[in-house]
C-alpha cells in the first residue's frame, strides 16, 4: 500500500471522505460533493471504507462521529476550499506514512496535520515564500495546520528523517 502512487492516495482520501462520516448531519453536503467528485461511489456506507486507507489511518482524534478507532474527522472532499484537508501522518521506525504520495488541494484550503511519531521530529512544509514548521514530540500526537495561499507543488517533509511525507499539489 505504501508505495502506491499519488493518484491512488488521493482516491483513497476521497473514498474515505465520502463514506466515513455518513452519520454526521453536518457532512451531508460534503457527501454529495464527494459523490460528484468520485463519480463512482454509489453507496456512501461504511463498507466502502472497510479497508482503512493507509494514508488515513493515524492517531485518532476526538471526533464527533467516532465510528471506529481509526476514524478521523476528514471533514471534506479534498478538493473544496471550504473544507479543511486532514492528513494523518504516522512516523515509526524511521518510516513515514504517507510515504511521498501526492495530494491535490485547493488554494485557500486549510491543511491540518495530525502527526504521531515514535521519535521527536519536526515537520516542514515548504510553502513558497513562507514555510511552516511543526514540532512533534516523541510518542504524543501533535496537530498543526496551515493554509496554502498560492498555487504550486509543495513538499511536506520529516526534517529528522529527511524524508518526503506528502507532496501537495495546490491548484
Amino acid at each position: 500500500m505504501h508505495g502506491l502512487g499519488g493518484a491512488t492516495s488521493t482516491q483513497q482520501l476521497r473514498e474515505r471522505d465520502t463514506s466515513m462520516p455518513a452519520r454526521s448531519a453536518v457532512i451531508g453536503g460534503a457527501v454529495a460533493l464527494g459523490l460528484l467528485l468520485n463519480g463512482c461511489t454509489s453507496n456512501p456506507e461504511p463498507e466502502a471504507s472497510a479497508s482503512p486507507a493507509a494514508t488515513l489511518s493515524g492517531p485518532s482524534e476526538p471526533s464527533p462521529p467516532a465510528t471506529s478507532s481509526t476514524s478521523v474527522p476528514a471533514q471534506s472532499p479534498s478538493l473544496n476550499a471550504e473544507y479543511a484537508l486532514t492528513i494523518n501522518i504516522e512516523i515509526a521506525g524511521g518510516k513515514t506514512v504517507p510515504n511521498g504520495n501526492k495530494i491535490d488541494v485547493r488554494v485557500g484550503q486549510k491543511v491540518i496535520l495530525n502527526v504521531m511519531s515514535d521519535t521527536a521530529d519536526e515537520i516542514h512544509a515548504h510553502l513558497g515564500e513562507k514555510d511552516y514548521e511543526l514540532a512533534v514530540p516523541a510518542g504524543k500526537p501533535a496537530k498543526g495546520s496551515f493554509t496554502l495561499d498560492s498555487r504550486g507543488s509543495f513538499e511536506v517533509e520529516s526534517h529528522h528523517l529527511e524524508k518526503t511525507i506528502v507532496i501537495l499539489n495546490a491548484r
Binding site: K102, H126, L127, G128, E129, D131, S150, R151, G152, S153, F154, E155, N169, A170, R171
Partner: peptide, 8 residues
C-alpha cells in the same frame, strides 16, 4: 533550493 515546484 526551490521551496515550490511546478504543478504536474
Amino acid at each position: 533550493i526551490a521551496s515550490r515546484h511546478d504543478l504536474p
